[in-house]
Every structure is written in structure tokens, then in C-alpha cells.
Nucleic acid binder design. Structure first.
Ligand SMILES: [Mn+2]
Ligand SMILES: [Mn+2]
Ligand SMILES: [Zn+2]
Ligand SMILES: [Zn+2]
Lengths: 143, 143
DNA sequence: ACTGAAACTGAGATTGAATTGCAATTTAAC
DNA sequence: GTTAAATTGCAATTCAATCTCAGTTTCAGT
């Protein structure tokens, strides 16, 4: 479970499992979906725990480093994260008309990407594929 | 040609083809590859033209809006652009260590994405695939 | 050419996410 | 307990990007 993994990670680096770090960890895994650091900071505050913005940022970096959390994307506003432990990898299709997000996963696609990386002597670790267009609903509505 | 396209775009929006805007346009198309706004600003200066940072940023937005330039990605530092007019579609691998960007294109990959879209009744029009990891150079340097 | 209204510019101020310096505090090994 | 190392929060700082605005340029209409 994520708590164990994080404490282990900290131990190996000579870092300490402080209340603040654990509060961030707990809050990150208390809900599903994407979030910004500021949103997380407010949730922690609201949950009665305490952790400064600085600690939230610092702990998020640690969580990413140990693989429990992933930086999903960078928007004009800032970074967006999601916890990944317990969730499997997927990519997204986003409808330009209604904003619907379709998640998908293709083994073939993943393998093909690995092949392409190898051809380029590149050690790929993560990727983001975002397909934009129009969903079925919006397409039929149009005609 | 890009000059014509940009002037047309400006005309339709009631905007004017000022020296500064044309200087930015020219510089963007004077070389191939990816660039940051600051780098473009310095190139323009060095080329003997004049355009403030503000104008460079403002003009870049216009160039993106009219489709001649594309925002490739956002790094911790800032945005990276490339001119697209005259270039065919490709995706990117980005080295997390040195920032090098490798361009690639795979017909198979494109077809596979079309298949997946079809399976999801989604009419895909564009996509962005960004693979992150470590390039050959940085990997050998490490060990 | 001249004129005026609208568009445009650059310099500096401002924004805001993210990082950092540092003195006070907490942790945990001994 | 004692003590060294790690950690915290706050405020200061960074830095790309945006904005403000007074002076300048553009160009359609005459
Ligand atoms: Mn994928
Ligand atoms: Mn490219
Ligand atoms: Zn839709
Ligand atoms: Zn590299």
C-alpha cells in the first residue's frame, strides 16, 4: 500500500516521514482524478491537517520521484498531477466540441512506441498521447 | 508562402503588418527546429531588426493562431515552438536530462491511432504524442 | 499629401506558479 | 536526555509571460 511504499522510499534516502509529508500523501490518495498543487494544499487545510504550500510542493516532488504520483501535464496555469499507484496507464481522446474525455489503452500502441524508441536509441519512460477531434454524439448532432 | 498567409490573416482580423510582426515572421522561418521565445528575441536583435520581447510574445501568439507555428511543448523553463508551414506531421521524444528533442514519424503509429479512434467512434483530427525519457548520449554518460 | 481614428509599440510594472534562504523546530539515533 | 541532521513555514526570490499606458505608426478616407 502507498503508505508503506512512501515510508520505504523516504527511509532509503535518509528522509523522515513527518506529519506534513504523510498528510500530503494521505490527501493525494483520498480522491481520484487530476489536481493542481494549490487545490491539494486547500484540501489538506480543509481536512484539518497542516502543511505549507512549500511542503506541498516539496512533497509532491518526492511522490513523483518515488513513482506514486505522476505529473500529467503542464498547463498555462501550472502543473497537473494524479496519483498513479493502483491505476493503470491510459491515454486520452478529447472532444473539441463537448470536452468529453475518452480513456483508452492499446497494447499494440504501447509496443509500437517501444519499438520506435529502440530505433532511436531512446530510453522512453513515460509518454502522453492526446487525440483531439469529435466524439460520436457531437458528430451525429452536427448532421 | 508564409508571408502571404500571415498578411492575409492579419488583414482579415483588422490587424496591421508592422515591421515588428514581419521581423518576427521572417526570423521564425529563417531556420528550422525548435525554439524558445527568448532565443527568437535574441536572433531578431542579432539580425539587425528590432522587436521588443513583448512584441515577440504577442506575434508568436498570432502565428500560432493562424497555423503557421505550433507550440511543441511546455518545459519547466517555458514554451517551445516550431514553425509548421512547409513541414509534415511528426511527434517528439524529449530527453529529460539534456532537453534534446528527437522528431519521429511512423506510418504504422498513425494508422493504429486511426483504428483506435474508429473503435471508439471518435473522429480524430489532430494528436500530440510526447515520449519522455533519456537520450542515448545522456544514458551512456550516466553509466 | 493631409487628417484622424484605430492599431501598435516598448519599457517597465505586474502576475503567479514554483523555488529557495534561513532561523526556529522536530526527528530519531545513540 | 543529548545532539546532529533533517524539516518546517514564512518571506523573499525567481522568471516566463502578460499587462499597462503614453507616445508612435499605420492607413483609409478625403
Ligand atoms: Mn499510452
Ligand atoms: Mn518538431
Ligand atoms: Zn463531443
Ligand atoms: Zn539527453
Amino acid at each position: 500500500m502507498e503508505n508503506k511504499i512512501f515510508r520505504n522510499f523516504l527511509g532509503e534516502k535518509g528522509l523522515k516521514p513527518t506529519k506534513e509529508r504523510i498528510a500530503v500523501l494521505s490527501e493525494v490518495f483520498s480522491f481520484h482524478g487530476h489536481f493542481e498543487p494549490e487545490y491539494l494544499y486547500l484540501r489538506i487545510k480543509n481536512a484539518g491537517s497542516k502543511a505549507s504550500r512549500a511542503s506541498v510542493y516539496r512533497t509532491l516532488s518526492l511522490l513523483v520521484e518515488c513513482g506514486l504520483v505522476k505529473k500529467v501535464t503542464r498547463t498555462e496555469k501550472g502543473n497537473i498531477y494524479e496519483h498513479t499507484y493502483g491505476h493503470s496507464h491510459h491515454d486520452h481522446m478529447i472532444c473539441d466540441a463537448c470536452g468529453e474525455i475518452i480513456e483508452f489503452y492499446s497494447e499494440k500502441l504501447e509496443n509500437l512506441q517501444d519499438e520506435i524508441c529502440a530505433e532511436n536509441s531512446f530510453a522512453g519512460s513515460t509518454h502522453t498521447l492526446e487525440i483531439r477531434g469529435h466524439c460520436k454524439k457531437c458528430r451525429t448532432k452536427q448532421s
